[in-house]
Design a protein around this nucleic acid. Structure first.
Lengths: 237, 237
DNA sequence: GACCAAATATGGTCTGACCATACACCCGGC
DNA sequence: GCCGGGTGTATGGTCAGACCATATTTGGTC
């Protein structure tokens, strides 16, 4: 019934260790990041080496790395050389997007909540962009022109996202920008539907130009109002 | 050198399949969630069954489930019975917290950005709470009383988080609440330091009472101002 | 020096085993 | 009939060891 095995250490004492092996790996890697001064671009040891150092199996190491990859903190490349292996990155956008998409699928979030959150961020970002004066004006104007030239709803929405991302980026806050990006990506499909439903993008473009003008004029109040009306039009409540 | 194996299918045609096996599993599970009407509380098939159905190894299934667990969408219990196995959940808070913590460690986010984002959410939530009238007043008042009675900075901060979470929850938006929770949890350590640095919590409590009063009086403007001053005091810029 | 083949290091996948846990089931005693 | 305990079993968690695909490094040949 039972093949002789004999290479197991049966948990060397119940010393409070209730954590699973991969969590131990997770903690150790986070320690190295926090203490060792590792930063974006640095490489982690290979999976096999990590497994040996931490005295766990490679599977456990892989599960830990998969968790970190899901959070957008590491990225793995196969092959050999300086660029191969697990590298520290910082791509929170995709993780946030996935989080939102799944929660929308599970109906633990509603579109209303997502759109309201987006409105909060855009109002805030528009006011800051108007106050700061316009580093983002160039990008925003380009996006408006590109939307004019867009042949399909997909194209239009792509440039629409670029417009609103430029506005968000003008706030200088990478966290709100990342959240904004994730919000847009998660509901990209709905945005395309909205464009199809409206049929005509002239009103949306008029809104965009009003936002652009308000930021150019450094009129925070007008920028906030323009953004509010724009979202009310695109996602009627 | 090479043991005879012979149970491998060498990738049945390069039919564009550039996705890794665990990603395929991820997609299939998400499909089931989106299409099959699975919702929170429902169980997924066991790892072994899933592996057989999708014609991949159990390791790949596990990596996919680990990714979903990292996003707070599934939770696994060992054992047997109705509660065992992988169950769909919705705990985005921990995923967001981890994301923020790691990005702070990696210095791809600054405390300033985190605090500014928190300010944005709290201003917005305070205005809405004041407008809606106070379902949250009871909880907030309790939290203020508990902070008065707190013996340690840790205790104080715990109730402080409860106070601000009640305010955020009053907005009725689960997404902003979840982000708020994650923001607070990620910088919990800094909050405790801030309390220690201030030495005295009387000013903070005075702020809390001003916020509470403004919400009670349904004065959105005063609530926003009170929140703004409170954060400026706690995290001077 | 340029080019090509072999060695090698990396992540990705698979198999098959064992472990720990917690419920399901059955069987005996009452 | 009911209850209590022992056993069966399904579940996730872990491990070991192999092979595969990929990309660089290395070294040899012309």
């Amino acid at each position: 019934m039972s093949v002789v095995d004999g290479h197991r250490e049966p948990r060397r004492a119940p010393e409070g260790a209730r954590t699973r092996a991969f969590e131990e790996v997770l903690d150790r890697i986070e320690e190295r990041i926090a203490a060792g001064g590792l930063t974006v671009g640095d490489r982690l040891p290979g999976e096999r080496q990590l497994a040996e150092e931490l005295r766990v199996s490679r599977s456990s190491v892989r599960e830990a790395l998969r968790a970190l990859a899901t959070l957008g903190v590491v990225s793995s490349q196969v092959g050999r050389g300086p660029d191969a292996g697990a590298v520290l990155t910082s791509r929170p956008d995709s993780a946030l997007t996935e989080l939102l998409r799944l929660n929308l699928s599970l109906s633990t979030l509603t579109m209303r909540e997502v759109v309201d959150t987006r409105l909060m961020i855009e109002q805030w970002a528009a006011a800051r962009a108007a106050g700061d004066g316009g580093a983002a004006l160039g990008e925003m104007a380009e996006a408006v022109a590109a939307m004019d030239a867009a042949a399909t709803p997909e194209e239009f929405v792509a440039h629409d996202i670029a417009f609103h991302m430029a506005l968000a980026a003008a706030s200088g806050n990478r966290l709100t920008s990342a959240i904004m990006r994730a919000l847009r990506d998660a509901v990209r499909h709905y945005a395309i539907d909205a464009v199809l439903r409206l049929g005509d993008t002239a009103d949306l473009q008029a809104d965009h130009r009003r936002i652009l003008d308000a930021v150019r004029d450094r009129d925070a109040e007008a920028a906030t109002a323009a953004v509010t009306e724009h979202l009310a039009r695109a996602y009627p409540g």
